[in-house]
Simulated scan of single mutants.
Amino acid sequence: MSKFGELIQAKTPVLIGFYADWNEQSGDIHPIIRDVAAALGDKARVIKIDVDKNQELSDALRIKTLPTLMIYKDGQMVWRQSNAVDANSLITIIGEYF
């Protein structure tokens, strides 16, 4: 989890998508995350985290529904939502934290 702590300390917004390969709804998030990352370039960091490979982190953040999306800025969670959001909406939301 120390890597996670370093990751979220960024001055730019960090969008994190929590997913699992076995979860059908999680499959919807992959192209959305890719589109958001392409649209934002270096204005934000976009990361996907597999809950099965990061169980301790998922438990600590109380990830119960997949996919779950979070935005961190300067080490603080500033936005969180369970279930998918379309790419344009995510780009707009992240833009509030530039």
Rank of each mutant, 00 (worst) to 15 (best):
D74L: 05
Q76H: 09
I16V: 14
H30A: 10
F4G: 02
G75N: 13
R45T: 15
K48W: 02
N23K: 12
I49K: 13
T68S: 15
E24D: 11
E56M: 10
I91A: 08
I33M: 04
A10K: 05
T68N: 15
F18N: 07
E56C: 07
H30C: 05
F18D: 08
Y72A: 01
A44V: 09
A60K: 15
R34Q: 05
S2R: 15
R45E: 15
L66I: 10
Y19I: 01
R80I: 06
S2M: 11
K73G: 06
A87L: 09
R80P: 04
I33H: 00
W22N: 02
I93A: 00
I33E: 07
S2N: 12
I16W: 05
V78Y: 04
R45C: 11
D42L: 03
D35C: 07
K11Y: 04
I93R: 03
M77F: 00
I29E: 13
D52N: 12
R34A: 12
L90C: 11
K64H: 12
V36C: 04
M70L: 14
K43R: 11
I29N: 05
A38M: 13
P67W: 03
L69H: 13
L15M: 06
A60S: 15
I93G: 03
F4I: 04
V46A: 01
L66E: 01
R80K: 10
I63G: 04
E6F: 06
W79C: 05
V85Y: 05
K11H: 10
F4Y: 12
E56V: 13
I71G: 01
E6Q: 14
I16T: 07
L69F: 11
D52Y: 06
P31N: 03
S82I: 06
I94A: 06
P67D: 06
S2G: 01
T92E: 15
S89Q: 15
F4T: 10
Q76W: 02
V51R: 00
M70H: 11
I49R: 07
I71K: 00
I93W: 01
S2K: 12
P13D: 08
G95R: 06
H30S: 08
I16R: 00
V14C: 09
D28N: 08
I91Q: 03
D74I: 01
D86V: 04
V85Q: 14
R62C: 12
E96D: 14
D59F: 08
D86Y: 06
M1W: 10
I91C: 08
K11I: 04
T65H: 11
Q76R: 13
P67R: 01
I94E: 09
A87E: 09
A84Q: 07
Q81V: 11
L61Q: 14
I29Q: 10
I32W: 05
I16F: 05
R62V: 11
Y72G: 00
A10R: 03
W79A: 07
I94S: 02
S26R: 03
G17S: 09
Q55L: 08
